[in-house]
Design a protein around this nucleic acid. Structure first.
Lengths: 118, 118
DNA sequence: TCAACTATTCAAGGATTATTGAAATATGGA
DNA sequence: TCCATATTTCAATAATCCTTGAATAGTTGA
């Protein structure tokens, strides 16, 4: 993740509807969600959700694939991880204290297995 | 960090000059930088840097304090950590794979002591 | 092929954000 | 007090982004 991509990703996440969409897609996992379902749950018009999905895709944070009549959108976990990494690597330039709270979250997350999560 | 703060922070980071400023302030540590030095290093006009600094402060990512004629700006490490945490906590809702790359960065950062960094 | 379904694209307008240069404010020293 | 320094504020303009509704495009089943 370079600065150009990070700027696009931060821009994508800085809008209420898009942040809402990303959070839904992260929760929905690899199955993703159809554009229509996203519009319904986020309570925005089809054309508006389409605008924001395009913006999110341009930033690399989500991907799309057609499935019959629907277009399924999925969170790009690699890009999200890369963004976190981009923020954290900066802080590693001499200032461990920024990373400490994030490391605590990571610690509660990374060791979890599928069994533990159920 | 709630959604409202996260939106403001993402918005603040989504602009080239501001991202540049944040990265400089993170590197400069607790000493911070005067507004004039920031303007000079970022190669923007005083009034423009002032506009962006105000925006960054509004988002909570930096703080200011006057020191003689200068106004010193400092990165708010807690807010930056909180933002990373906000991104990561979302992913912890069932999807450890997002956190994995970030956890790796955290691991290389968190155990570092002041002695090790010199 | 036709109709229904799902979603995107387009153009217009409104709203927000960024840049610029001039004027104003605050501080410290002669 | 007066001047120089450091920075902010303001108003105007330019640029970007968001929303809306109508028109368009791909997909499926009758």
């Amino acid at each position: 993740m370079d600065q150009r991509q990070a700027l696009a990703a931060f821009g994508a996440l800085s809008q209420e509807t898009r942040l809402h969409i990303i959070r839904m897609l992260v929760v929905s996992g690899p199955d993703g969600m159809a554009a229509g379902s996203i519009a319904e749950k986020a309570e925005v018009s089809p054309s508006n959700v389409s605008f924001h999905l395009k913006e999110l895709e341009r930033s690399g944070l989500i991907t799309q694939q057609r499935e019959s009549r629907s277009i399924i959108y999925t969170a790009n976990y690699e890009a999200l991880g890369g963004l976190i990494r981009f923020l954290m690597e900066d802080c590693c330039g001499g200032n461990a204290e920024i990373c400490a709270p994030a490391a605590a979250v990571a610690a509660c997350c990374a060791p979890a297995t599928k069994e533990e999560l159920q």
